[in-house]
């Protein structure tokens, strides 16, 4: 009888407090509570934004309505869509994000391969300079570039953002060079030697052996680069000034753009600019990235492992 009792006691104990194989119920519950609580704090701004953006002007004034709007209202979105000039600015944003990213990844792969596979003097200096380009804020290099583009007539043109990327000096290029450097460093030397014995040129080795082996590095670099270029507003607002504008740029002059479309004195009180319209604009701004994130989430959250970025 006593044996049975202690058996159940120990079963209960390990069920609640865990044993060597399992954490036990209490630890698990606490873990999930903690993660859910932090997750909520994390997502709070997004939830707030989404809920507010669905509120009609009446709901906004009603202090009873906090989290559940009284009706399904998309009026804010139709306004924000017009104010952001969505279709055109979306295409510009996409171009500004995608084209430099592809070029940047290509150049970074060349440089990363060169640094990882060849011994030459001055390599350490290049690493130091790479770190320097990562640290130095854009403010210290952007004005002369802007003046140069101005004299070339490229200011306000998307190519002013494409050209630096073409030379590996795009936004955060140094990180991508390091990603490729890490990824190529683990590439087996024997494969390269065998190809060289078969008479392959350096170019062929790079294109036919190295590039196919680095597909994960390419994918990770390109998607991160797209996200960072999309969200970058300092360089874009300087280089594109007086020309086209991206979605984030349009968002930063939202009030002005709204009042051009809906002049404050001309529209009725419900069409005045309110926070719901602003947050709809914000949501429309991040929507393409959210979609991209949920489609490619595995690539984002496993990026560090897949490219071995932290190294050994």
């Amino acid at each position: 009888m006593d044996n049975v009792k202690t058996f159940y006691e120990s079963r209960l104990k390990s069920f609640l407090f865990g044993n060597r194989e399992d954490y036990g119920l209490i630890v698990k519950v606490m873990l999930y509570l903690l993660l859910i609580a932090i997750g909520f704090v994390y997502l709070y701004p997004l939830l707030f934004m989404f809920v507010t953006s669905m509120k009609s002007p009446q709901d906004l004034l009603n202090s009873m309505i906090q989290w559940v709007p009284s009706e399904f209202y998309v009026g804010n979105y139709t306004k924000a869509f017009r104010v952001l000039n969505y279709p055109i600015n979306f295409l510009i944003s996409a171009f500004v994000a995608i084209v430099p990213s592809l070029l940047q990844a290509g150049v970074a792969s060349l440089v990363g391969w060169g640094l990882a596979r060849y011994r030459f003097r001055g390599k350490n200096l290049i690493f130091v300079l790479l770190m320097a380009t990562f640290i130095i804020p854009a403010q210290t290099t952007v004005i002369p570039q802007m003046l140069a583009y101005k004299s070339l007539g490229l200011l306000g043109n998307v190519f002013s953002l494409v050209i630096p990327a073409l030379f590996g000096q795009g936004y955060r290029s140094a990180i991508f060079v390091l990603i490729f450097y890490q990824s190529f460093s683990t590439f087996p030397k024997a494969l390269e030697e065998a190809a060289r014995l078969d008479g392959a040129s350096e170019k062929e080795i790079f294109l036919k052996i190295a590039v196919p082996s680095a597909v994960p590095a390419f994918i990770v670099s390109i998607i991160f680069s797209i996200v960072w270029y999309w969200n970058e507003t300092y360089l874009t607002s300087i280089f594109l000034s007086g020309g086209v504008s991206t979605l984030p740029m349009q968002l930063s002059k939202f009030v002005q753009a709204y009042e051009n479309l809906y002049p404050p004195g001309m529209v009725n009180i419900f069409d005045r600019l309110n926070e719901a319209v602003k947050l709809s604009g914000t949501f429309l701004n991040i929507l393409p990235l959210l979609i991209m994130y949920f489609v490619l989430q595995k690539w984002f959250v496993e990026s560090v492992e897949r490219t071995g970025l932290t190294g050994e």
Binding site: I38, G39, Y42, L43, P45, L46, F48, M49, T52, V227, W230, N231, E232, T233, Y234, P248, M249, L251, S252, F254, E275, K278, L279, G281, T282, N285, I286, L289, L290, M292, Y293, F294, Q297, F300, V301
Partner: peptide, 21 residues
């Protein structure tokens, strides 16, 4: 996925708008 999400959406104007509201 949740903890990585902000990386994707933190741009200046978005943060500014969220802070302002």
């Amino acid at each position: 996925t949740i903890f990585f999400l902000p990386v994707v959406i933190t741009s200046g104007p978005v943060i500014q708008e969220l802070t302002a509201q």
